[in-house]
Design a binder for these strands. Structure first.
Lengths: 341, 341
DNA sequence: ATGAAAGCGCTAACAA
DNA sequence: TTGTTAGCGCTTTCAT
């Protein structure tokens, strides 16, 4: 039923290799023959079988894209961009979702390895050691992770987080909580480090809570703890958690930002639609998707060195969920906020 | 460099076919030999090449999944579920995004055709004729579309939409707008029909506006038009548009639901986080993803007839964006609302 | 410019 | 139970 190169060859009385060339190296075949072949192919409805082609050339023209959770709104724009760029480079994208499980991640890389030209690991949760091992089975590139000699696209979340902290400090906050993200997340560590440094410089009291799953539920659940700390401002690992926190705080009757300021990270679409609208850090997800594909298929433009690294900027966008620190009030868990220094 | 079946065969001194069998039909090989082969394979780091296998078996163990827009929060849960079910059945999923463009849709089906065992068309925008043509090139199943003799998963959005209309009618609304969805959308037509029938029965005045792209922007842009109609309630094609409408109305100083009620469709995560929280129709996206994969790989349970069809229920969830119709007020575009009948 | 032939990694009859 | 032999659809030397 499926029409092959051989059917076309027979139809226009040339050898299969001529047909093959017509599709993979058209300039090597006589224009007249070429059009005859093309016509026959068209008439028969011939479509090259990429799998067969892959078997001999070793290139599948597919790439794998592995994310922790496709339902996390942070990823779709990245995926969409990656896919667009891949298509522009005549490739297709396998998307797989690990459910935040490092074991699944590893299994997926193995399963995909042979049918793709390379795999994009987006915010992987695996250990470095595992990634090091896997890279021998298939070309890898990572997003938001640093592995020696592996091409990487990094979002400079440290800068954005630092900006957020500066913003909060300028608003007079002294007691700040960082709601950290999932275990194994490079991003979460980056934020933690940046925020810790910032707190030290500004003389703020910083409390780190976590690790957490990066979900609304986790954010919602953290509301009481945040209050118990006596914090007046919270930076969350991502917008999903921040939005959850907004809900949790609301349920507790805590006004935002009057009593507690909340800052998220990612700038997902949702963050513009909460009330109050969420102050957050924009992440260049789409740009990262595009860049990552270029890196993987290598040759972003120049014939860059083996382990190219692309750094993308992030920045704070102030909306409504952050505001001046409330004056120390009676009834607040900490009676003396005592600004250090 | 890549280790093949032949390397393994050599390593434990058996024929390639024995190695092959060890992986594809283990029961046909002597347990002792089998473990020797397995050991050698493991030592060498052998991984079967699924592409090569596909070439001879004709089965790729991949499926394609095409959606209009992966960044529309309606799709990720569906994709995630499909992927999970596919993995359970030892398949992988190619996800592709058409940017709401029917031409891209068709091109993608063709490109994917040879490397998948079948393709899931989710809420396709293509014409029936095109789908009919494509189904001869690759097995197809559709979600939210009816094509004669093609397996389909349908969400009974008509029922949900009807419930929404009943709800609005019960609240005393007489002037209702339906913000319709994109051209080519089966869902949008279903809703339109249901809502039209309901309006007739309840004696309501119904105005259909559209078609629209299913985005916040479109919803936002519709706010003025909605007001101009003198409508007191709006049903939107999806939550994204409803949320946009909420914004647009807010910008115009129109209180929801006091002056205008807004009802969405889809029940995306976002809809629980807007203020007011969105009244909407739940859509069984995850269930649809699972069912669609089963249909495509056919054999949902029984060896059903050629064109199985799965219908999934939907239902209204009332939150805060819908409320009693405002009494006819001076200054409102229509001075006499005159309940018909 | 085209044809002939070998082979990519694997499976599937068929024999032994 | 295992080996032998073709061959999946295609590309790619090497001849011609």
């Amino acid at each position: 039923m499926p029409v092959t190169i051989r059917d076309v060859a027979r139809a226009c009385d040339v050898h299969v290799s001529t047909v093959s060339r017509t599709f993979s190296a058209p300039h090597l075949v006589n224009p007249v023959t070429r059009s005859r072949v093309l016509a026959a192919a068209d008439a028969l409805g011939y479509r090259p079988n990429r799998a067969a082609r892959a078997l001999v050339t070793g290139r599948t023209h597919n790439i794998g894209l592995i994310v922790a959770d496709i339902a996390n709104p942070f990823f779709p724009p990245l995926i969409k961009a990656a896919e667009g760029q891949a298509r522009r480079r005549d490739h297709h994208v396998f998307v797989a979702d690990t459910n935040e499980d490092p074991a699944v991640e590893q299994e997926l890389v193995r399963a995909l390895a042979k049918q793709v030209d390379g795999i994009l690991l987006c915010s992987p949760r695996m250990s470095n050691a595992n990634i090091e091992r896997l890279r021998h089975e298939v070309p890898l590139a990572v997003v938001n992770r640093v592995i020696p000699d592996l091409p990487a696209v990094l979002m400079d979340v440290a800068h954005g987080a630092r900006q957020a902290l500066d913003h909060l400090s300028a608003l007079g906050h002294h007691e700040i909580v960082y709601l950290s993200g999932p275990h194994g997340s490079w991003t979460s560590r980056e934020i933690g480090t940046a925020v810790q440094a910032g707190a030290r410089e500004h003389g703020l009291r910083l409390r780190v809570l976590g690790p957490h799953q990066p979900t609304e539920t986790a954010g919602q659940g953290a509301a009481e703890q945040v209050l118990a700390c006596g914090a007046t401002a919270v930076l969350a690992y991502n917008d999903l958690m921040a939005v959850g926190l907004l809900e949790g705080l609301d349920a507790l009757g805590v006004p935002v930002p009057e009593q507690v300021s909340v800052v998220g990270i990612d700038d997902i679409a949702l963050s513009r639609f909460t009330r109050p609208r969420l102050t957050t850090v924009t992440m260049p997800a789409a740009a990262a998707g595009t860049a990552a594909v270029d890196l993987l298929l290598h040759g972003t433009s120049d014939g860059a060195s083996a382990a190219a690294q692309v750094r993308l900027p992030t920045s704070l966008v102030v909306r409504q969920s952050s505001g001046p620190a409330a004056a120390s009030r009676p009834g607040s868990p900490r009676t003396a906020l005592g600004a250090p220094r």
